[in-house]
Simulated scan of single mutants.
Amino acid sequence: MATFAVHYTYGDDTETARDTVRPEHKDFLAGLHESGRLRVSGPVDGGALLILEGSSADEVAALLDGDPFRREGLIAERTVREWTVVFGGLK
Protein backbone atom coordinates (compact mmCIF):
# COMPACT_ATOMS: atom_id res chain seq x y z
CA MET A 1 0.00 0.00 0.00
CA ALA A 2 1.11 3.53 -0.73
CA THR A 3 0.66 6.60 1.46
CA PHE A 4 -1.54 9.48 0.29
CA ALA A 5 -1.93 13.04 1.56
CA VAL A 6 -5.46 14.35 1.13
CA HIS A 7 -6.30 18.02 1.57
CA TYR A 8 -9.86 19.21 2.04
CA THR A 9 -10.76 22.86 1.53
CA TYR A 10 -14.09 23.64 3.13
CA GLY A 11 -16.69 25.68 1.29
CA ASP A 12 -17.44 29.25 2.28
CA ASP A 13 -20.06 29.69 4.98
CA THR A 14 -20.14 25.99 5.88
CA GLU A 15 -19.10 26.29 9.53
CA THR A 16 -22.60 25.84 10.98
CA ALA A 17 -23.35 22.89 8.71
CA ARG A 18 -19.98 21.29 9.55
CA ASP A 19 -20.76 21.63 13.25
CA THR A 20 -24.04 19.79 12.66
CA VAL A 21 -22.51 16.99 10.57
CA ARG A 22 -19.20 16.74 12.50
CA PRO A 23 -20.24 13.83 14.79
CA GLU A 24 -21.11 11.67 11.77
CA HIS A 25 -17.93 12.84 9.97
CA LYS A 26 -15.81 11.88 13.00
CA ASP A 27 -17.48 8.47 13.21
CA PHE A 28 -16.71 7.91 9.52
CA LEU A 29 -13.06 8.85 10.03
CA ALA A 30 -12.84 6.73 13.19
CA GLY A 31 -13.95 3.72 11.16
CA LEU A 32 -11.22 4.38 8.58
CA HIS A 33 -8.68 4.75 11.38
CA GLU A 34 -9.76 1.53 13.09
CA SER A 35 -9.42 -0.31 9.76
CA GLY A 36 -5.85 0.99 9.40
CA ARG A 37 -6.57 3.04 6.29
CA LEU A 38 -6.53 6.48 7.94
CA ARG A 39 -3.22 7.09 9.68
CA VAL A 40 -3.70 10.66 10.96
CA SER A 41 -5.99 13.62 10.27
CA GLY A 42 -6.83 17.05 11.55
CA PRO A 43 -7.82 20.60 10.66
CA VAL A 44 -5.44 22.88 8.75
CA ASP A 45 -5.83 26.23 6.98
CA GLY A 46 -9.60 26.34 6.40
CA GLY A 47 -9.78 22.63 5.69
CA ALA A 48 -8.20 19.39 6.78
CA LEU A 49 -5.22 17.17 6.09
CA LEU A 50 -5.71 13.40 6.07
CA ILE A 51 -2.99 10.80 5.60
CA LEU A 52 -4.28 7.47 4.29
CA GLU A 53 -2.98 4.17 3.00
CA GLY A 54 -4.29 2.89 -0.31
CA SER A 55 -3.48 1.18 -3.57
CA SER A 56 -4.04 4.29 -5.73
CA ALA A 57 -5.19 7.90 -5.58
CA ASP A 58 -8.46 6.89 -7.23
CA GLU A 59 -9.07 4.19 -4.63
CA VAL A 60 -8.44 6.64 -1.76
CA ALA A 61 -10.71 9.24 -3.37
CA ALA A 62 -13.47 6.64 -3.77
CA LEU A 63 -13.05 5.65 -0.13
CA LEU A 64 -13.46 9.29 0.95
CA ASP A 65 -16.53 9.77 -1.22
CA GLY A 66 -18.44 8.30 1.74
CA ASP A 67 -17.40 11.14 4.05
CA PRO A 68 -20.53 12.92 5.35
CA PHE A 69 -18.80 16.29 4.81
CA ARG A 70 -18.54 15.40 1.09
CA ARG A 71 -22.07 14.00 0.95
CA GLU A 72 -23.42 17.27 2.37
CA GLY A 73 -21.42 19.42 -0.08
CA LEU A 74 -19.22 20.99 2.62
CA ILE A 75 -15.92 20.31 0.83
CA ALA A 76 -15.22 22.84 -1.92
CA GLU A 77 -12.03 21.13 -3.08
CA ARG A 78 -10.29 17.84 -2.40
CA THR A 79 -6.80 16.88 -3.56
CA VAL A 80 -5.32 13.41 -3.27
CA ARG A 81 -1.59 13.05 -3.80
CA GLU A 82 0.75 10.12 -3.29
CA TRP A 83 3.28 10.95 -0.58
CA THR A 84 6.61 9.18 -0.29
CA VAL A 85 7.69 9.22 3.35
CA VAL A 86 11.50 9.46 3.46
CA PHE A 87 12.20 10.01 7.16
CA GLY A 88 10.12 8.92 10.10
CA GLY A 89 7.03 6.90 9.73
CA LEU A 90 3.44 6.41 10.61
CA LYS A 91 3.57 2.69 11.19
Rank of each mutant, 00 (worst) to 15 (best):
G66A: 13
T3F: 08
V44I: 15
R39P: 04
R70V: 00
A76R: 08
I75S: 05
G66V: 06
S41A: 12
G54N: 03
G11M: 10
A57C: 05
A30N: 13
L32W: 07
L50Y: 00
L29M: 15
F28H: 03
A17E: 10
L49E: 03
I51E: 02
D12N: 11
G42C: 01
E77P: 04
R18L: 14
M1H: 12
A5L: 07
A17L: 03
D19L: 15
G54V: 04
T14P: 05
S35K: 07
F69C: 10
G73Y: 02
A62D: 14
T79V: 03
V60D: 00
T14C: 13
V86M: 13
T3M: 05
T14H: 02
R39L: 15
V21D: 03
P23M: 07
D58Y: 05
D19W: 09
S41P: 06
G47M: 07
A62G: 00
G46K: 01
E59S: 12
L63G: 00
H25R: 00
G73A: 03
R78N: 11
D13L: 13
S35N: 08
V85G: 09
L29R: 02
A2W: 12
V86G: 09
P43G: 07
G66W: 07
S55A: 14
L49N: 08
A48F: 00
D65K: 01
I75G: 00
H25C: 02
E82V: 03
A61H: 08
H33T: 13
K91D: 15
D65C: 06
F28E: 05
G54T: 04
G47L: 08
R37V: 14
V60Q: 00
T84D: 08
A76W: 12
G42F: 07
L49F: 14
G88V: 10
H33G: 11
H33E: 14
V60S: 05
L74N: 02
P68S: 07
V6L: 01
L49I: 08
A61Y: 05
A62M: 05
V6A: 03
D19Q: 15
V86H: 15
I75K: 02
A5V: 07
A30D: 10
T14G: 04
E82L: 09
T16Q: 13
L49D: 08
T16L: 13
R39K: 14
F28T: 08
R71V: 12
V85I: 13
I51M: 04
G88C: 00
A62S: 04
V40L: 12
L29E: 08
